[in-house]
Design a protein around this nucleic acid. Sequence first.
DNA 1: CGAGATATTGGTCATATGACCAATTTTGTC
DNA 2: GACAAAATTGGTCATATGACCAATATCTCG
Lengths: 201, 201
Amino acid sequence: MMQGSPAATGKGATRREQILEAASALLLEEGYARFSARGVAARAGLRLSHVQYYFPAPADMLAELLDRFVRRYSDEIRARFAGPGNGEQRLHRALDFLLNDEAYRRDCGIFMLEVASFAARNEAIAAALRRYYAVYLDGFVDMVKALNPALAPRERDRRARQSIAFIEGMAMTRPHMGAKGEADFSAREATRAILRLATAS
Amino acid sequence: MMQGSPAATGKGATRREQILEAASALLLEEGYARFSARGVAARAGLRLSHVQYYFPAPADMLAELLDRFVRRYSDEIRARFAGPGNGEQRLHRALDFLLNDEAYRRDCGIFMLEVASFAARNEAIAAALRRYYAVYLDGFVDMVKALNPALAPRERDRRARQSIAFIEGMAMTRPHMGAKGEADFSAREATRAILRLATAS
DNA sequence: CGAGATATTGGTCATATGACCAATTTTGTC
DNA sequence: GACAAAATTGGTCATATGACCAATATCTCG
């Protein structure tokens, strides 16, 4: 088999998982600037050349991590919005996940902060990011449609984009913008804000 | 004088500017991952040790760049909102700057994407980022107050935070979220969205 | 069991980086 | 002009990194 992308099944697949898990942890703890194939290998208890056998370049790990991120969470978020309750309740459930789920926030932080800057200089990463946002947007268009069926498709798209921008911006600014005397940016506040954004005529 | 922060006036000050300008350009073009004192020196036409004389560690350059960023733009944004016209017109003017001004967008991209991830591992950078957002928030609280004087202070704070999150999120997601058939995220659309966010009861 | 694909090892090599320092030149000031 | 501080040079050193490769072990399937 070609060296570029070794086995997708069997032993190779498990090893691949192990490497990506180490890569993810390393990226989270050290940041992209210190992300290295050697570091991943050390974390996974493997040799450098062993990691390189699966991922010739460090960026290959990032691209695959990003795609997995999309696959892992897109259904999850849709499911939370699809459950019972009225629009506000369902939106709140989805936002509570997007803003407060520990695993999601961790992964999201990795990709939005660490990887996004790399996307400007690596087309493969940029493409993976576009795929991510395409799925994200798709889901939100459905949400906006459910919340405000009267909106024209173009306007619906716009509202969905604005809602996503709001959520991403919240996740990004929250750590650096201390609330004065209260826990701001809670899922409930965010829900109200997005309702204003998405459903107002 | 102590080696840590050489002369703030005279020849040293100009050299400092020159170094920071090179650092800024390098950061923009290569990203934080490839940001190095050597690279800055090469760009500025100086020796490595010369750059290190002014900025012992590479992160020192980033922290100062970030603080300059705050100082440079905080007044500018306030001025645009303070001009003539009704609330919507003034907000639009400010947002047009925040979203479309070339220099601002460039600098903003540097700090939000390249530097923010570093902030998680460097307290000096994190502190500079907090100062940035503190100034930003302060300005937006005033904006929200002008747009909707009836809001209680706590709610006003919240709306300001949400508006900032929206703007930052827009700037961040825009490059990766292609609009379908129209120029989305224009300053006008953003203005309407923020008006919904900030002024709705 | 045997052969070919897959996985794994151990290493080299060129390059890049930040910390560090001693020596020298330039600048400002008395 | 003398003298101290500031600015600048040129270099070393330990370390880290990705690309690369030849050799070996392990697995898989006929």
